[in-house]
Design a protein around this nucleic acid. Structure first.
Length: 606
DNA sequence: GCCGTTTTCGGCCCGACTGTTTTCAGTCG
């Protein structure tokens, strides 16, 4: 018997990985396995739903399980939960192994290729004996290139060609993850600018995860309202920076652009535009919740509108607002549509009034070009340029938080900070600022033991300190928590900078007892930073939402290294909105005198 | 297998696109 059919093979420890995404794939493979064995349709659906829910769940459940912490996820009931627990604790689950073992593992591998589902994968694996998991993609590619696939029943020349492309694509891009929101924004803007030059466009919007302001984006979706869909789609297909056209119909077309990003354009008449906008903005979980809610009112919800269950009458909506209002709901901003409890709260009228970009009155995490002899990058703009930019943004204050000088310079650290203060004070004085202030801060490393690389004598040259982690990211949870708490206890600390220290797609969040840390921040009046840098977006929105209920205050900063980057504050505001924050939750929505008072108070504390 | 303001049984979303077919299957979102 081939090893892939053997239960023992599927008992290799963590054969499918530990992340939520990988665990979700594992559940999907079980669904595929059941599908191929023609088992109960709804049992299959149940595994797929569980997989979707797990993939959308914000906390890595592997960590929860190994720490014996409980979790409740919609659509994951007792049975699947128990299997996940068994898999995470033992490295495999007996029952899962049994279900999977009737199908070669290479079948599951092939389902990762676009346009290949379980049935095609199974047929290909069986026909061409593709049992080697190490080389299955290359093996199939060779078979396809040899022209052997077009003769298979249900396949043809075209499907052979598209399979070759899909495989080549998969092989060249399989290492690539979802792109950052910031990059997706730029691509989407360029395409929208191009398409919008067509005269037949009545409305155009970006949909999906970009519109919900998710930190990363898989595909880019765009909606257009028009009476001439052919002209709009033709224009879209002529987009000059496309790599290829994926498909093109009368209501929808897809192209591939740089970074192997797929862009879908959906076209609809003006009268039903609101329904389409709502439907394809998602998220999937939000739509499920909304659909259930609508069904209770006697309507079935689709991308075309509502259909009365009783008399089949269709109702269309030209705007999203009308749709939500018709259902008796307050308008739900796209950022909140993640399938938590937003539908329920919209019904009760209890959605928060989300913070807006215009609420921001200043930015306290800016790096200037003054040479503090740090071992990090300096900023490239000087204080004059930063003040001008901040004024242009309508700010009342900024805080310069350069990196601390190198730790090895011990004796001269104080001297560098003294010179810096003198230099800044001169600029501030000479500019005769009115209704505007500059705070002189410092972004200070939290050393591995929780101490800070400055002496008490340095404090007199500083208005405030941001503490943040730039090294030793993998301490265990207990040590990391102690480390952070010690640093937060230093005098003049006002801000805990980029708390999880994650870099999206590059470095995972540190492990720490956030509950303990944020409670401490609340007690000490320390603001928890929402760092707007597109590759950080740290604190992540899930944690913001979770710990907002503690009453801790947040601050949205850019961590800018040049004046232009002050504009990126919008990404921090998006993240705050996604974390359900209001103006009152964020300290830098406060006026200058309130901020001055807060900073003074922090410096008087021991 | 999941879920419950119809709660322990009996329901569970569905339309578009592609390709191969000649009325449908597979895949995707």
């Amino acid at each position: 018997m081939n090893k892939n059919f053997d239960v023992e093979y599927y008992k290799q420890k963590y054969l499918f990985g530990k992340s939520n995404k990988e665990l979700a794939d594992l559940l999907r493979y079980i669904a595929y396995s059941l599908e191929l064995k023609k088992q109960d349709y709804f049992r299959i659906i149940a595994y797929k739903n569980a997989a979707d829910a797990l993939e959308a769940y914000p906390v890595e459940i592997y960590n929860l399980i190994v720490n014996n912490e409980d979790f409740q996820i919609e659509n994951i009931g007792k049975i699947i939960k128990q299997k996940l627990i068994e898999y995470c604790k033992n490295g495999y689950s007996q029952e899962m192994a049994e279900i999977l073992s009737e199908i070669p593992i290479t079948v599951f591998y092939l389902t990762q290729v676009r346009s290949v589902g379980p049935k095609k994968a199974y047929k290909l694996v069986e026909t061409f004996k593709l049992f080697n998991p190490e080389t299955v993609y290359e093996d199939l590619l060779n078979v396809a290139k040899a022209g052997k696939i077009q003769n298979l029943e249900g396949f043809g020349k075209k499907s052979e060609e598209s399979l070759i492309k899909a495989l080549e694509n998969y092989l060249s891009y399989k290492m690539q993850s979802r792109i950052l929101l910031y990059l997706a924004d730029n691509i989407a803007k360029s395409i929208i600018d191009w398409v919008s030059q067509n005269q037949d466009i009545l409305k155009i919007n970006v949909l999906g995860s970009i519109r919900r302001r998710c930190e990363t984006v898989g595909d880019i979706d765009i909606a257009v309202a028009t009476d001439n869909s052919k002209a709009v789609i033709d224009r879209f297909l002529e987009y000059p920076d496309k790599i290829k056209i994926e498909n093109a119909g009368s209501n929808k077309a897809s192209i591939i652009v740089k970074n192997n990003i797929r862009v879908d354009l959906r076209v609809i008449d003006k009268s039903r535009y609101g329904s389409m906008l709502q439907y394809f903005t998602g998220s999937k979980l939000h739509n499920i919740a909304l659909r259930e809610y609508a069904l209770n009112l006697g309507y079935s919800l689709s991308e075309y509108g509502l259909k009365s269950v009783s008399d089949k009458q269709e109702i269309s909506f030209s705007s999203e607002k009308e749709l939500y209002e018709f259902l008796g709901l307050r308008y739900i901003p796209p950022e909140l549509r993640e399938g938590n409890d937003e539908v329920e709260l919209a019904k009760k009228g209890k959605l928060p009034k989300l913070i807006k970009l215009s609420d921001i009155k200043g930015d306290l995490h800016i790096h200037s070009s003054f040479d503090t002899q740090t071992h990090y990058d300096l900023g490239s703009s000087d204080l004059n340029e930063l003040i001008e930019k901040a004024k242009a943004l309508g700010y009342s204050y900024i805080g310069i938080a350069d990196h601390n000088p190198k730790y090895s310079l011990k004796q001269s650290v104080q001297k560098i900070l003294a010179e810096r203060k003198k230099y800044y004070d001169q600029i501030i004085y000479s500019k005769k600022l009115e209704q505007f202030n500059v705070f002189i801060g410092l972004e200070c490393d939290i050393l591995p033991d929780g101490s800070l690389p400055i002496t008490d004598e340095c404090l007199k040259y500083l208005d405030y300190i941001i503490v943040s982690i730039h090294s030793s990211f993998d301490l265990d949870k207990t040590k990391m928590t102690q480390r952070i708490l010690r640093a937060l206890n230093y005098p003049k600390v006002c801000v805990f900078g980029h708390p999880t220290a994650r870099l999206i797609n590059k470095r995972p969040a540190i492990s720490a007892d956030w509950q303990k840390i944020f409670k401490f921040c609340k007690e000490k009046n320390i603001a928890v930073e929402i760092n707007s840098s597109p590759e950080r977006l740290d604190l992540p929105y899930e944690l913001i939402k979770m710990y907002k209920t503690f009453g801790v205050k947040f601050i949205i900063n850019t961590d800018s290294h040049n004046a232009d980057s002050l504009d990126l504050i919008a990404y921090g505001v998006d993240t705050a909105r996604k974390g359900w924050l209001t103006k009152d939750d964020v300290v830098n929505t406060n006026s200058l005198d309130k901020i001055e008072l807060w900073i003074q108070k922090q410096s008087q504390k021991k």
